[in-house]
Every structure is written in structure tokens, then in C-alpha cells.
Design a protein around this nucleic acid. Structure first.
Lengths: 361, 361
DNA sequence: CTGAAAGCGCTTACAG
DNA sequence: CTGAAAGCGCTTACAG
């Protein structure tokens, strides 16, 4: 049971020997994007040819030891398996790869054998690994010292504003999400459009309400408090949804409360749901009462979660465009890695969400 | 717009200086799991103390240059966002982390700007990065030269048998999955249990059928060809589902064909579906015909996909235990990294799937 | 039990 | 335009 022979690597020295030049020249020619200030065009061409023939690629460890960047980015997520973040994780990698970089995934929860939360551990570990920067998409309700993250990794880009002044972040325009949903329902002929919110004390939910109100006015529908459902008013009736587990018992009672308040009492013919999960239980409850979707009441979700395709009827929802978010996050990162801190005004990027029409509205 | 000052790192040399010993001793003491064959117990203790106080952690690049392992594993997946693989990706990282290792995610599709398929590119890139091994969970229907992968990375562990002799792989016991589903339906009182299969020409589907038949006999239900639906018999009627896109149009006609064949013609009161997607469209079709689930016909899925919780009624299904699979994959990997190739008999691991009861059966 | 030195593969001043 | 040399931070024979 002996170890295998490692595959022999071709070194820069080998290229130099074959090309008949010194290592320094090879390094210069292959390095800095061909600014051949050193070798003659002829020599450079020869070196390039030999390097290609020998299939040479410089050892990243040796380069890093000399101070080169690692071309590695850390990705902090609570749980990479969660479909709500997994597409962001995927697209961060795809975008990083376009710049020749790789992503190192770090799940901050899940390793309960070690500790309930590995955020801070990973922050130090990534520093040790010498990453060029860190993407942080750990939702605010999870632990972790974000100030320390930013201190140790100045090149950090957050998904969603962490509330720390001066940080770089990419967020979804929740106000626009509210407007898009209302506009679509209005165009589908809805006259009394209600909105359900998890809790108005949260800034993101408040932004959605703001967008909802603005678009209601723009559509000439005015506003009616009977059409605004605030989950916090029912706190005692609605168990807390911790959203941390791989599977969890979603409080289906939400569907009952929302349909009671908005449809039975408020007479709504359209509902803007706070997310696809709520939309899903709302639709189930409507069906249970013999109310047709979208015939009697149309429902628009938010997230474009994987499940949107599979509930019945398939859910019309607002997508957050994780590919676009990843693109912007990587772009910010690359700017920081190359040129240092971004100007104040360029540290916050707002992504425009997108309406995805299926059948529920 | 100038670059930031990098955070000053503490080197082994600093530790040596403070502790008043030479670097070699420090290296020896901090290195090999405290087999202090070099320093006296006193010196060792002093060095350890200083190292801790200075918060020293050795530069991985320098170590690697001297031949140490990278503590990095590559993870090849078609698309890390896909919920079918994202949990495996997450648990591979969690398990690797327990051994002090990190995972480097590689999406083999998605970067169409580069090429339709980046499998082979990533295989070379991971070699270049010097990973200690590679986990490959790219589904068989995607491209990529797996033989070359195994040649360049002898330490490769596959999720599902790639059909290359001698490789290490962890698979789900599909026969057991078939048995579990039948047993549960039988215990719920079903008398005529049908099975739907995507296509019998696929070995994994054939294994499920084998398990189904075995358990039907064990339950004393015998077998009836009218209760076996083979998707390949309806190839012309069922459009190909490519499963590659983030969203795709699932052929809902499958639901019609399956319900026609198994329920209308076969008189089934229980259905074993090939996966949760099929189960979902089958249930939708049953409802459309006024057939109650699970009252009239019970349905069991396979995968325990995220959507299982959200369809109506929530789906009873067979889970593949991605955490267990990841645990075994990492264990195999660690053995190979430490001691070289595994004995012939230990290269294939079968994971026992698990019945997850919700409401559809 | 401990130190001085060589070297992993690369890059980058410094000479010529 | 090119070469020889030093050095990044560590480990590991080789001396003492």
C-alpha cells in the first residue's frame, strides 16, 4: 500500500534550458501580459513556443511565495446547499473563472461537530489561505463578526448590505420588486391588490411596501390598509420560521391568516407575497377554500425559487437574477484587487429584479 | 486610488527569534503532530507558547513548495446551483473541513462564453492548482473525459459509478430504493402497486425495477406487467428532458401517460415514481382527474428534492442522504491521500437510501 | 538536543 | 537585449 508517484511537473527552468535562455527571460516573457521589454521578438516567440510544447504552467505556490496574488476568492455562505444561495455560489464561480480565479466555498453552519457557527473560523482560515478577496452571502440572521471580516479582508463584497459603512455590497432593488408585482397584477386586470409582508420592522420588507404603494398610486388604485398584511401583527399566531435547516416545518397557518385578512376581509383579487414559500402556502389555502388561482385571485411570489416551477399552478414570481448579482460582485472585486478601494459612490450596487410569468398571475 | 497595505504576516522566523531558537527547531516542533524527536520538552513548550501568542500559522504556499500537500480538493459538478447536487457540494465541504481541507468548486457547464463544457479544462486547472484529489459528481450525461481525469488525478472519488474499472465511487443503492418504496406502500394498504421508470435501458432504472420486483414478491403481491411503466415505450410521446438548464419545461405529458397506463388501465392504487419531478406531475394529473392522493392512489417519489415539501400534498419520497454520501466520499479520499490506492474490494461504496414520509403516501 | 545551510520554483532588482 | 544572483517562507538532511 505505497503512495503513488506524483506526475512529474515541467518547471520554468526546463523551458529555459530547452529554449536556450536564462530563467529570468522566460519569466519575463511569460509573465506580464507580453510586455516584452526584455527579450527580442524572436527570443520571445521561441520561448512561447517551447512553453506551449512542454505544456508549462507556472507553479502557483512559487508565484505566491514571491508575492503574486493567489487567484482565489473565498465564498462565505451559511449553507451552500440551500437553493436560495446555491445559484449565487455557482455564478460567482463562473464569473471568477472568467478572470482566471477560483472560489473556495466556506459553509458557516453545518459543521456542528466543530461549533455552531464557523463564520469567524473561516474568516481567519481564508486569510491564512491568502485569498485575494471574500464574497459574503451569509444572511444577516446568522452569526459572524462582519467587521472583523472587513478588517482582515479589505477586499470583501457582500450580497445584501451588511449595515457597515463603507463596505461594498450588491443588493436587490426591493422597491422595484414591489412595483413589478403590482404592475403585473394590474395589467392582468386585478383591481384590489393586496400585499403580504413578513414584518414591517425589516428594512427590506419596508422597501417592498414602498414600491407597492408607489405603483398602486401610479396605477390609480390608491391604498387601503385592509390590503396590507403585516406578519408581525400575527406574531403570536405564526410560529417563527428559522429557515436554517435543510428541511423545516413551514408554518402553513400563514396561508390561513393571509387569505382571511386579504381575501375574505379585504376583498383582494391579487396578492403580492413576500416570497415563494408564502406564495405556495397561500395558493394551497386558496385552493382549499375553492378559490381559483389565478381566476379568482392571482398570486405573485418573490425569489424565483426552484419550487416555483413545481407548485400547482406554477408560480409567477419576481426573480433576483443571481447571475447578474454574481457578475456585479465579481466585477467589484476585480476592481478592488487591481486598484484598491472603490470610490465612495461605487460601493453599493442595486440589481433590478425581473418578472417571471408562469401561471399563478 | 492606491492599493492597500497588506496585513503583515508573522513568519516562522519571527517565532524562532522570539523563542530564541533556530527556525529548524520551530518547524520540527510545530510540524509533525508533536513527535518532538528534536526539541526538549521545555523548548517545545516554549515554542508552542510563542507561536500561539504571535498567532503564527505557516504559509501554505511555502509548505507546498517544499512538497507538502495542498489540503485542497477539487469538486467537479455540472452546476453547483442545482439543488440535486448543491447539498452534496455543501456536505463535501463540511466533511473536508473536518480534516482541515478546503474544496475548490468547478462548474463544468455554465460558462458558455468559454466553451460549452469546461470539464477537461477544470481537470487540468486542478492539477495545476495542486489539489490533493478530486470529487467528481458530474452526471454521466454531461461531457468530459473521465479517464483523463483519473489518469491525472489518481485520487479521484466519483459520485455514482462512472463505469471505469478500478475507480473509487459512492453510489446510492437503487435496488434498496425500489424495495423501500414498495414496502411502504404495502404497509399503507396498497394492493396494486405500479412503478414508473424513465427507461429500462439505464442500469440504475433497471436496478430500481429489480428492487421493486423483489419486494413485491416478498409482500406476496406478485408481478404484473400492466403495473410497470417504461418511459421508453412512449419515447415519441414524451419529449426529452435535458435537465441541464436552470429552468426547463418539464414534459407534463408524462403525468398523463403514467396515469393512463398505471391507474386507468392497470388499476394501480400506489405508484413508485422514478423521481420527485415525475411524482409531482403524476400527482398534478391525478388531481386533475379527481383522484385523491393518497386516498385513492398513493405516490412515492425519489430524491427528496427540495420541492418535496412544497407540492400538494407534500411528497413521501426516498432520500439519497447526501450527507452520508459526502462522508463516505471524503473518507475514501483521505485514505487514498494518506496511504495510496485502496484495495480492490474497498473502491465501491453503496449508500442506503432512506424513506421520508410526508403526506402523498 | 540544536544550528547552519541547501533548496522547493518562481520573480525581480542588479550587472553586464 | 540577456545572465547570475538573491530571496519569498518553509522543511529537511547534514553537521556539531
Amino acid at each position: 500500500m505505497k503512495k503513488r508517484d506524483p506526475i512529474k511537473k515541467v518547471r520554468l527552468l526546463d523551458v529555459a534550458r530547452v529554449a536556450g535562455v536564462s530563467p529570468g527571460v522566460v519569466s519575463q516573457v511569460l509573465g506580464k501580459g507580453r510586455s516584452n521589454s526584455r527579450a527580442s521578438a524572436q527570443t520571445a516567440a521561441r520561448i512561447l513556443k517551447v512553453a506551449r510544447e512542454l505544456n508549462f504552467s507556472p507553479d502557483p505556490s512559487a508565484r505566491r511565495l514571491r508575492g503574486a496574488r493567489s487567484n482565489l476568492y473565498g465564498v462565505l455562505v451559511a449553507s451552500a446547499g440551500d437553493p436560495l444561495v446555491s445559484f449565487l455560489v455557482e455564478h460567482l464561480d463562473i464569473e471568477a473563472m472568467k478572470g482566471g480565479c477560483h472560489t473556495l466555498i466556506c459553509n458557516t453552519i453545518g459543521n456542528t461537530a466543530l461549533a455552531p457557527d464557523q463564520f469567524d473560523y473561516h474568516v481567519r482560515e481564508l486569510l491564512h489561505q491568502g485569498v485575494d478577496g471574500v464574497f459574503c452571502a451569509v444572511h444577516e440572521w446568522f452569526g459572524g463578526n462582519r467587521r472583523e471580516l472587513v478588517r482582515l479582508h479589505p477586499n470583501t463584497v457582500f450580497y445584501d448590505d451588511p449595515g457597515i459603512p463603507g463596505t461594498c455590497h450588491v443588493s436587490i432593488d426591493r422597491e422595484a420588486a414591489g412595483r413589478l408585482a403590482v404592475r403585473h397584477l394590474f395589467e392582468r386586470g386585478c383591481k384590489r391588490i393586496g400585499i403580504a409582508l413578513r414584518g414591517l420592522s425589516r428594512p427590506k420588507q419596508a422597501a417592498r411596501l414602498k414600491g407597492y404603494r408607489a405603483e398602486m398610486s401610479a396605477c390609480g388604485l390608491g391604498t387601503d390598509n385592509a390590503l396590507v398584511f403585516n406578519g408581525e401583527d400575527f406574531r403570536s399566531a405564526i410560529p417563527v420560521c428559522d429557515e436554517r435547516g435543510e428541511r423545516w416545518d413551514f408554518p402553513c397557518v400563514i396561508g390561513i391568516r393571509v387569505v382571511d385578512a386579504l381575501v375574505r376581509d379585504g376583498g383582494a383579487d391579487g396578492i403580492v407575497a413576500p416570497d415563494d414559500f408564502w406564495a405556495s402556502v397561500i395558493i394551497r389555502q386558496l385552493r382549499a377554500r375553492g378559490i381559483r388561482v389565478p381566476g379568482d385571485v392571482a398570486v405573485v411570489g418573490y425569489l424565483n425559487h426552484y419550487l416555483s416551477d413545481w407548485i400547482d399552478p406554477p408560480l409567477t414570481t419576481i426573480g433576483r437574477c443571481p447571475d447578474e448579482a454574481a457578475r456585479r460582485m465579481v466585477r467589484m472585486m476585480e476592481q478592488m484587487v487591481k486598484a484598491g478601494p472603490l470610490p465612495e459612490g461605487e460601493r453599493a450596487v442595486l440589481i433590478q429584479p425581473k418578472l417571471i410569468v408562469r401561471q399563478s398571475a
